[in-house]
Simulated scan of single mutants.
Amino acid sequence: MEPTRATSSTSGSARPPVVVLYDDRPDGLTGLKLAALSLRSTSPGLDVRAIVPGAGETFRAWASANGVTLVEPPRTLHATGWDVKPTVLLHLLDTGADPVLWFDTDIVATRDIRALLAPHAPEVLIAAEEYFWGYHQGSPARTTTLGLDVGRVLPRSLNSGVLRVSSVHRPLLEAWARVLASPAYTAAQDAPIPRRPIAYLGDQEVLGGLLGSRTHADVPLVQLRRGVDIAQCFGPSGFTVAERWAARDRLPALVHAMGRKPWNRPEAGRGGPGRRLATWWEQVHLDLTPYVEAARPHLDGLDEPIDWVGPLTRSGRLLARIGSPALRELPLVLVDTSQRGMRRALGIRQVPAEAAPSAARGQPR
């Protein structure tokens, strides 16, 4: 995990960050609680803060009882979802927190995360690698689609589910916020995913494009390794066969429930045969995802129903007999790998690399 650009101060131990959790979805609070509980358990002493717009008294009481500091949303917050990341991070820096770690609310920690962060000085930006099937890995398209000159090409796309920044990253965060507020980005979010230019697929694509630009190419960057430091569980094959085999004895330090969340299961028995099959498939996946196993030690602290915890399907109960949480889902992984590989080879539902001519003009630098 060496920085992509070395600096004279990348050695030594960085001080622990302030961790910020954010969610503005009512059904996202289960994940936020699990993220916080896992951090309080595995990384004791970390300053964990949460921003929950419109938080009710029940959640406020839970946060107080579990050592989570509830922070009011910044007045500058005009976006929703993950597009708030640069605004939230800048707000925390403004209040004196430095460094700050953004931690997605669908991630749980299985051991102390400070071991992943401490070797890198504060000027090193820390993110994660995108899951294996992410679009256009190792391509400058994210940068060129923003209309920027290429300064470097990241060999693996960036995942911003975990993101450590410090005050030296203000120019990058401000540029990120400007692009996320731009008309081109806003318009792209209204289009189906396969029709979005790669740079406007989501917030992390914009950040990856900026980091690849000549303007920000000197920002030292470390990406947590997928399958080693973080399990990117996007469907069965997001956490690949090879990654699962390497993690058969111990899951990575971070487990990320990308896509549908286990506490938001699809309703079974609805629709035609194809829809029922897809629902069954997703139910089995949610029975067996390593995220549930990683979250299991913290379920009692949720103080809410946990009827979503499986296995709830007959197939899930059968495969759950496999001892290793990383290997229980292998039959699904093999099938999912085959169909994803075929879709990639045939160009089915893939995100275009290039933008329409009007989309790349006038982007903030």
Rank of each mutant, 00 (worst) to 15 (best):
T4I: 02
R5C: 08
T7S: 15
S11R: 12
G12K: 11
S13G: 11
V18Q: 11
P26Y: 02
T30D: 00
L32V: 07
L34Y: 03
A35I: 12
L37G: 02
S38Q: 04
L39K: 13
T42K: 15
S43I: 09
S43L: 12
P44G: 12
V48S: 07
V52Y: 00
V52F: 02
G54S: 01
G54I: 03
A55F: 04
R60M: 13
A63D: 12
A63L: 14
A65E: 07
T69R: 15
V71P: 04
V71A: 10
E72Q: 15
E72Y: 14
P73C: 01
R75M: 04
L77E: 12
K85D: 07
P86S: 08
V88R: 08
L90G: 06
H91E: 06
G96I: 14
G96V: 14
A97R: 04
D98M: 10
V100D: 01
L101H: 06
A109D: 12
D112C: 15
D112A: 09
I113V: 15
L117A: 12
A127I: 00
H136P: 13
Q137R: 12
Q137E: 13
S139C: 02
S139D: 06
P140Q: 00
T143V: 09
T144E: 03
T144P: 06
G147N: 00
L148I: 02
G151C: 02
R152S: 08
R156Q: 06
L158N: 00
G161P: 06
V168K: 06
P171R: 10
P171G: 13
L172R: 03
L173D: 05
E174R: 12
A175I: 03
R178A: 15
L180G: 01
A184P: 03
A191F: 05
D203S: 04
Q204S: 04
G208F: 04
G209S: 00
R214D: 03
A217H: 05
V222F: 04
Q223T: 09
Q223L: 12
Q223C: 10
G227L: 06
V228A: 07
A231F: 14
C233H: 02
F234Y: 11
G235N: 11
G235T: 08
A242W: 03
A242I: 02
R248K: 14
P252T: 03
P252A: 05
R260V: 09
K261G: 11
P262C: 07
N264A: 13
R265M: 02
A268W: 05
G269A: 13
G269V: 14
R270P: 02
G274T: 09
R276H: 12
Q283D: 02
D287A: 01
T289S: 11
Y291G: 10
Y291K: 14
Y291V: 10
V292C: 13
V292A: 12
V292P: 01
P297K: 10
P297M: 13
H298M: 14
L299T: 10
G301M: 11
E304M: 15
W308N: 10
G310S: 12
P311K: 10
T313M: 01
R314Q: 03
R317H: 08
G323I: 06
G323T: 13
G323H: 11
S324D: 10
A326Y: 13
A326C: 09
L327H: 14
P331R: 03
T337G: 04
T337K: 02
S338W: 11
Q339P: 01
G341H: 09
G341F: 05
A345S: 13
L346P: 04
L346I: 01
V351G: 03
A355T: 13
P357I: 04
P357W: 07
A359Y: 00
G362W: 05
R365D: 15
